[in-house]
Amino acid sequence: MREKKERTPLLDVQGLSVSFSMYERGLQKKDLEVLHKLSLGVYPGEILAVVGSSGSGKSILAHAVMGILPGNARVKGEIHYRGELLDKERQEALRGKEIAFIPQSLAYLDPLMRVDRQVIGIRGTKEKQEAAFARYHLGKEVERMYPFQLSGGMARRVLISTAVMEEARLIVADEPTPGLHEEVAMETLRDFRQLADEGCGVLLITHDIDLAFQVADRIAVFYAGTIVEIAPVTDFLAGKEALRHPYSKAFIDALPQNSFKPIEGFQPYAGSLPEGCLFAPRCSACSKECAGEMEMRRIRDGEVRCVHAT
């Protein structure tokens, strides 16, 4: 881990904010900011798991990296890929080649196209597809199937196959294990581990912290549209004392295997965020310093967005 940090990150997201302009009550247009100054880095050979509750906007991060946000989205901040700015042209040139996206479910496959043609896509070849199917233990008969004929586990492997069609260096996986058997989910994550061990950087977006514990190198805690802490997975396993941010501590405490103690209150809605620290209203350590702008700080072997963190 340590020596990886010295190299340039594969993916470097700095102060990413994404807002959507939408109509509220008639014709009043309003900008709704769903990601706020989010920063993270993914290094080659590692899995960075972004963990947060369902529906909190984690997918937007994946879509922003891929450049597939809807037309009413506005993006601020910078994304760098291998040291160079990842702008729209570069996203268009690289996605499907060096940057692969793995979606959540079967709904992301064309219902009327046979699986082999979809996996090949516009850039792959039949040979590569066959190799990928062999790698992920997909039978010959799966090639001629339509998406609706796939089982949950098969679908996962088909979706992963799409990522190995080209020499992907960065894999962005958006909730790749929802509704899966623990066994199948673990198998999927082992596939990601394998890809990372081959040198890929994997940005794994998930709400399943247990699974993240098992395969990730580092975990980024997503809260109210930003990342409050990034730390090595060992810190999370060591317990709340090893962590930096009050939310991560409370989050770990709330897990069934720990003290199962819920956190008071709710995550704030994107339209009505508090000033300064987004966690302040629910934080027991909140003081007047928390009202100011909150920057990401490096503490020990991780990063945290909290003035009190030690």
């Binding site: 597939i68 064309d110 516009i122």
Partner: peptide
Amino acid sequence: DSGFILFAKARGEDTAQLVLRHGIRNIAL
């Protein structure tokens, strides 16, 4: 607007390819 178009786009297809490969296939019937 559907997910499979988004995914195809994320895999590098441009608008013409999206329409020709997936759009027409799904509206023809």
